[in-house]
């Protein structure tokens, strides 16, 4: 079906090395099954996340651009960044360097000190974008080993994969994930908060504010009949999953909603085993019985 084998550079990001490990495992498994090669970017560094930007602009862009410069040396179709923060920061770096000659010259100077050069040629991609727009929903449906019929999911995109710039989908009401999983047999529930913020690092700095945001998200998913929430970001996943007990205590409700990475649910459809997808590492258990995979 495809002429040349697809190959992408892969930028896991710091979270996927620790709390987001199941995301990393399931992502690699899904790409392996689909026959797409992921080449990890050698010696990548932190993108700077949202926090470096609040300290120094030029150096935070330069640190993020180091990754792009390394990717450029490799010459690739695209650099896949699964973490929403990495994705947004790397995209933003590209945009700022393109739009502001002054920042570009500063960053060029800084990169040159480290013996690097960046010519703005690297396309930063989110795995969801690559799967749906490069591989295609139909091709994935053909590769599926089992139907997801009976699974009601709340598609949670979070903020940063669709904002600030219009990326691969609408900034307030994206449908990419809905389309993908509905084609695989699952049912997407009405989930108007799909791009509402999960609180991100506020869980550390202002826990009360973040807990309230998470409460609203989980309530919305549950009231609309979702069996699980699927996420595209390591931080959203942890925020939604790890504080359910504390939320229950705080607001006098009880929560037990499985929160999966979208690659985990996709992997189940593609016939990967739960261990391959790192499902045992989730703090919540996904309980919907699925039909056995057919070869």
């Amino acid at each position: 079906m495809r002429e040349a084998p697809m190959e992408y550079l892969y930028y896991p990001g710091c979270s996927l090395e620790a709390s987001g490990k199941p995301y990393d495992e399931s992502l690699r498994a899904v790409f392996r099954v689909l026959g797409i090669e992921l080449k990890e970017l050698k010696d990548w560094n932190c993108c700077g996340a949202t926090m470096y930007m609040s300290v120094d602009e030029a150096i935070s862009l330069a640190i993020s651009a180091r990754n792009l410069a390394l990717a450029e040396q490799n010459g690739c179709r695209g650099l896949i960044a699964p973490c929403s923060a990495c994705y947004t920061v790397l995209l933003k770096t590209n945009r700022f360097l393109r739009d502001s000659p002054e920042l570009k010259s500063k960053v060029d100077h800084l990169l040159a000190q480290g013996g690097l050069r960046y010519n703005l040629t690297v396309a930063v991609r989110h795995p969801l974008d690559v799967l749906v727009n490069d591989v295609g929903v139909e091709l994935i449906a053909q590769a599926a080993k089992r139907s997801l019929a009976g699974v009601c999911f709340a598609p949670y995109y979070g903020c940063q994969i669709v904002r600030p710039e219009r990326g691969f989908d609408d900034r307030e009401f994206p449908m990419t994930m809905d389309r993908l999983f509905e084609r695989l047999g699952a049912t997407g529930v009405y989930f108007p908060l799909k791009t509402r913020c999960c609180g991100a690092m506020l869980m550390t700095t202002f826990p009360d504010v973040a807990l309230h945001l998470v409460e609203e998200l989980l309530d919305c998913a549950r009231e609309n009949g979702a069996h699980c929430v699927i996420t595209t970001c390591p931080l959203c996943q942890v925020n939604l999953e790890a504080y359910q007990k504390r939320l229950g205590k705080k607001f006098g409700k009880s929560y037990d909603i499985p929160v999966l990475y979208f690659t985990q649910l996709l992997g189940l459809a593609l016939g990967c085993s739960e261990t391959e997808l790192g499902m045992q590492r989730n703090l919540t258990t996904f309980k919907v019985p699925l039909p056995a995979a057919v070869a």
Partner: peptide, 12 residues
Amino acid sequence: IWICASCYMCTT
């Protein structure tokens, strides 16, 4: 400025 979680909804 420290409560902003950087979700970019205002900018959008």
